[in-house]
């Protein structure tokens, strides 16, 4: 019995808790991608760098707050800075839309042209982030590190395995839940949200009913700024901030959005967790859990790791290809094939 409990604790500690946090971060990122796809109808390659920019803005504000002596108790200061970071990112995205994307929207350019344009925006944003904050690792988490650390947990329960819950993990889950709840309330209950959904479903019909497309687009960019910045800050708090890592998040985020069904917000959330858990489950060394579950003579000698952690991209990719082959519209029905 104790063995079984130990196995469950080890599993939660190394797989379930980190997987849930990573899944929430991916889900927030995928929500941004899927919203842009639904409303503006292109895959935004600049999304990873938007997240990086938002995180950078938040980090700069955090440093400003810290230098005048403001902190948030046991929570990271970055949470106070987050709204300001979102506002800065929102301004940047609105400016980008005004200066760049609007021209192509007026022309009714093909989606693939917009994708190439977004690659240009990606370059500029990436350059901007590197220019302002550099390419190094930035660790900006402060406040308490753990809600429960492994030693306290062991003393509390008397088990051999410890369960450590980091503050950032808890914050990630709570913040993501709040953000998702707000988003769905906005999309389903408010007038603007409903007009956004109408625009996404049928653009011509929405225009005929007097919906102002520019307003819908502007609101979309603001929501995307909020989602991207939140996702980026949570990821940065959990790990650390590095411009290049954020660019690499693009692949799992896209995979999550497509697996869930592009253009479908609910699908994006499901997709985020599917991708995150598969990555963690497949790259985790199972020995620690199996040691408790198997009889002594059958205990594994190796690490029982299905794939090395460096192949985590391969996991998101394999899931993506499987879904594309067997269910091209995604698990939840997305917008188009």
């Amino acid at each position: 019995m104790t063995d079984f409990l130990n196995a469950i604790v080890a599993l939660s500690n190394f797989v379930l808790v980190p997987g849930a946090a990573y899944g929430a971060q991916l889900a927030l990122g995928a929500l941004g991608v899927t919203l842009i796809y639904g409303i503006l109808r292109f895959s935004n390659f600049a999304h990873g760098d938007t997240m990086a920019f938002g995180t950078m803005a938040t980090i700069l504000v955090t440093w400003g707050l810290q230098s005048i002596g403001i902190s948030f108790g046991f929570l990271p200061t970055a949470l106070i800075a987050l709204p300001i970071g979102i506002a800065i990112t929102g301004l940047l995205l609105l400016g980008t839309d005004r200066a760049i994307y609007r021209f192509y929207r007026k022309q009714k350019a093909a989606p693939v042209v917009l994708v190439i344009v977004s690659i240009g925006v990606m370059f500029v944003m990436n350059g901007l982030v590197r220019f302002i904050i550099g390419v190094g690792d930035v660790n900006f988490a402060d406040g308490a590190r753990f809600v429960i650390n492994a030693r306290e947990f062991k003393e509390m329960t008397g088990l051999d395995e410890g369960l450590a819950i980091r503050t950032t993990t808890l914050i990630t889950l709570v913040t993501a839940a709040i953000a998702v709840a707000l988003l769905f309330w906005f999309l389903n209950k408010t007038r603007t949200g409903k007009s956004m959904r109408a625009f996404s479903d049928n653009e011509d019909l929405a225009l005929l009913s007097g919906i102002n497309p520019e307003r819908v687009v502007a609101v979309t960019w603001l929501i995307v700024a909020a989602l991207a910045t939140t996702a980026g800050v949570l990821y940065g708090l959990d790990k650390s901030f590095k411009a290049f890592t954020y660019f690499q998040l693009l692949l799992p985020i896209f995979a999550a959005a497509i697996v869930g069904g592009l253009g479908n917000p609910l699908g994006a959330i499901a997709g985020g967790f599917v991708i995150a858990f598969s990555e963690v489950l497949i790259t985790y060394a199972w020995k620690k859990v199996l040691v408790y579950l198997m009889p002594e003579n059958l205990e594994p000698s190796g690490l029982v790791q299905l794939l090395s952690t460096d192949y985590k991209f391969a996991v998101s990719f394999a899931i993506l290809i499987t879904v594309l082959l067997f269910k091209p519209t995604g698990l939840f029905k997305g917008q188009s094939v």
Binding site: L250, A314, F317, I321
Partner: peptide, 24 residues
């Protein structure tokens, strides 16, 4: 074989993925 014949964005994402896998 896997990604052609689907919409163009999907080919983009699939190629982005294969490139990362080759490097890995």
């Amino acid at each position: 074989k896997a990604a052609l014949g689907l919409r163009s964005d999907y080919l983009a994402i699939a190629t982005l993925g294969i490139a990362e896998i080759v490097i890995a």
